[in-house]
Design a protein around this nucleic acid. Sequence first.
DNA 1: GTTTCGGCTGGGCATTCTGCCCAGTGGGGG
DNA 2: CCCCCACTGGGCAGAATGCCCAGCCGAAAC
Lengths: 157, 157
Amino acid sequence: MTIDRLDARLLVLLAREPRIGVLEMSRRLGVARGTAQARLDRLRERGVIRGFGPEVDPAALGYPVTAFATLEIRQGQGADVRAHLAGVPEVLELHTTTGSGDMLCRLVARSNADLQRVIDRVVALDGIVRASTAIVMENPVPLRIIPLVEQAAKDVE
Amino acid sequence: MTIDRLDARLLVLLAREPRIGVLEMSRRLGVARGTAQARLDRLRERGVIRGFGPEVDPAALGYPVTAFATLEIRQGQGADVRAHLAGVPEVLELHTTTGSGDMLCRLVARSNADLQRVIDRVVALDGIVRASTAIVMENPVPLRIIPLVEQAAKDVE
DNA sequence: GTTTCGGCTGGGCATTCTGCCCAGTGGGGG
DNA sequence: CCCCCACTGGGCAGAATGCCCAGCCGAAAC
């Protein structure tokens, strides 16, 4: 459940230049190809690397508006709400959080006006008592993992 | 600023099996290799595909606790706060949102107890007036993009 | 109507990478 | 003290890549 410096360097390298192959990776890291290959395989096995899915920009798909909605859920309606929200394409992410039946979800929309449509669709379910929405204006720190990887590697030293 | 059905099929295919190459992709899609290559290049140029970074699971790095913190910011301190939070590895993401100087950030920690340390570090700055934290218990819908891609393709038809 | 142009096809080419194998080495744990 | 595991450095066939080409087609421009 931990990574060493070589793993960390590998992850950072992969994060910066995802398209490089195992051979090039081994060259940059200064290890044999088999080693790089084995490390990579192990990271995937252990679940550290979940996958290499393409990062798609919703804005480039025509959904430039992002918002976070906090949902207050009626007791015992959790499963219904989850299923409902999973069926809404504009819901990119859903978490259940501490607090009285609360959920937090990330939404996207084609415009601020369109956001209303999305929210209406989200709350169009009995199990949802109330929704409080915060529209994202800026994203000073986009989802990142490198600093954490480096921190995790340091903690092991 | 839009994608057609072939683009959508390509994105979905790529999301499901990220490691397949251009040749295999063209076979699955039933088009010439050059076409698949060209579509892929264009999607990257247009910014629809931002990259293929590895998806790293913080839990597997030893950070199984995720939380969202809403920060109330003192007027005019935005830049300081952004710089401060960018320097904290456990801050995976930061957004500025509508509302009075509010920000929303995603945090991870090694444990619930460790979360206290992270929050302390986050709020250790004059510019931050107050922090309200919600700990994530479940993640019924992990960050996803496929449904939105399919929706975007349908809207074009 | 006719021309032009961008996208797609299907193919060929040299280069590179992959997946898989091997024997040999070195250090740490049993 | 020995064994095991990780790493090294190498070889091999097969596959994919990057890059080129000529030809075809439909749509938009003229």
